[in-house]
Amino acid sequence: MPENQWDGFQWMNEPRQWSVEEKGLRLLTDRQTDFWRITHYDFVKNDGHFYYRELQGSFTCQLRFSGNYQDLYDQAGLMLRLDDTTWIKAGIEYVSSTAKASAVVTRDFSDWSIRELREVPIDFWVRAKRARDHVEISFSVDSENFEMLRLAYFPPSASLQVGIMAASPKGEGFETIFAPLDIKEG
Rank of each mutant, 00 (worst) to 15 (best):
E116M: 15
G91A: 15
D83A: 07
N46C: 02
Q10H: 09
A76Q: 11
L117D: 07
R53L: 09
F146A: 07
P15S: 12
E3S: 13
Q75G: 01
R107I: 04
A103M: 14
T85R: 09
D108E: 07
S143A: 15
H40W: 08
D30Q: 04
Q10G: 03
E185L: 13
L151S: 10
V162H: 04
V120Y: 11
D71L: 05
E116V: 14
E21P: 06
G24S: 13
I122H: 10
I137P: 00
L27V: 08
L72Q: 15
S66K: 12
Q10L: 09
D47K: 11
S66I: 00
F9E: 00
S138F: 07
S157R: 07
W18T: 08
H40G: 06
Y69D: 00
T85K: 00
L151F: 10
S97M: 15
L82W: 03
E172D: 15
T176Y: 05
R132P: 01
D123F: 12
R26T: 14
G77E: 08
R37Y: 04
D34K: 01
Y41R: 03
P121M: 13
D30P: 01
G91P: 03
R26N: 09
S110R: 09
D7C: 14
L80F: 04
S19W: 02
M79V: 08
Y41F: 12
E172T: 09
G48T: 09
F50N: 11
L82M: 08
R53Q: 14
I114N: 07
G48V: 08
F9L: 06
Y69C: 15
E185H: 06
R115Y: 06
A76T: 14
Y94Q: 07
V20F: 06
A128W: 01
M1F: 05
G48N: 07
W87H: 02
K170H: 10
E172A: 11
A131E: 11
S140W: 02
A101S: 13
L28W: 02
P155C: 01
Q161G: 11
R107P: 00
T60N: 09
G67K: 13
M1P: 02
S168V: 02
V44Y: 02
E116D: 15
L149T: 03
G173T: 05
R64V: 00
I177H: 05
F139K: 02
A131R: 12
A103K: 03
E14N: 00
S168Y: 03
N145F: 01
L72T: 15
W11N: 09
V162L: 15
G48D: 05
L149Q: 07
F43Y: 10
S168R: 05
T39C: 11
H40M: 14
T39L: 11
S96F: 04
D108S: 11
P169I: 08
I38H: 06
E119D: 12
K45F: 02
F35H: 07
W125M: 13
G91S: 13
F124N: 07
I88T: 10
W36C: 01
W18F: 02
M165R: 12
D30L: 12
I38W: 02
I177F: 10
V104M: 05
W87Y: 06
F139C: 07
